[in-house]
Amino acid sequence: MTTLTIPIIRTEVETPAQRVWRRFLANPVARISLVVIFFFAIIAGGTPILSATGHHWPCDPNQTNLEQKLLPPSPQHWLGTDNLGRDVFSRMLHGAGISLTVGLIAVAVSLGIGVLVGAIAGYFGGITDQILMRSVDALLCFPTFFLILTVVALLGPSLINIVVVIGLVSWTGTARIVRGEFLTIRETEYVKGARVLGQGAWKIITRHILPNATAPILVTAVLGIPDAILSEAGLSFLGFGVQPPQATWGNIIADGKTYLLDAWWLILFPGLAILIASLSFYLAGDALREAAESRG
């Protein structure tokens, strides 16, 4: 008996996700923003771990020293000290975690609601679509930040309240985009085929439509992160963010505004951190959008 050996032919076929990722990494702006985001993530993850082991680097963020208050940047205090003599650089390192946490969790909340509402509206259409989209229109008439401020101020500021409220308020954009994608995809042959085969709505939505709408959803998610970071910074600035003594980029500026004309470093550096962090998320999100949209 002869054994028949079947040669295994491996053809390297790029999946759509790999293609988007390759094109994303080919963009120098995307690479730089990704490095910056990683840098912030390492600070955000590393600082609390380091503090928990008792090693504060460079200083304890909450260590006050009234003899050294409002010092300008120097070799001892790289970015100066605040009105209680706390090291601004250490406080900023500890603030990074708050900003990234708020960004990620708020986006997760808004993504959950937005995808659900958009999927239901887009898939079922008709009266369901009308009701959901008119509600979205109504929400879009509210000035978002004012709505967040109102609810957080009334509920009482805490990390969990802030994250949930920002998420609850900012899903409308995602819902609109997901609905639009669903309206197009549900008319495709393969979705019609799945329906003909008798698959349920839930399975068609999760197995057939959603995977094909991943790219635009991912883009809105990445672009939503800096929105949340900026909202949290604004809330912190008005005194409704994460409460002291926990340092956040926004509340270092809020504390520093009293010494505006004497201690510019309390304003400049935390704001620069907010700017750089949100800018890199925006640029990464835009590069991702370009990578997902362009052909070839």
Binding site: V29, P226, L230, A233, G234, F237, G250, I253, K257, L260, L261, W264, I267, L268, P270, G271, I274, L275, S278, L279, Y282, L283, D286
Partner: peptide
């Protein structure tokens, strides 16, 4: 495009204070 994203990412309160420092002081 970079400037466009820079403008979105600028925290309004921060740039206001920087302006206050520069203009007033």
């Amino acid at each position: 495009s970079f400037f466009a994203f820079l403008f979105i990412a600028l925290p309004g309160f921060w740039i206001s204070y920087l302006l206050l420092i520069v203009l007033v002081k």
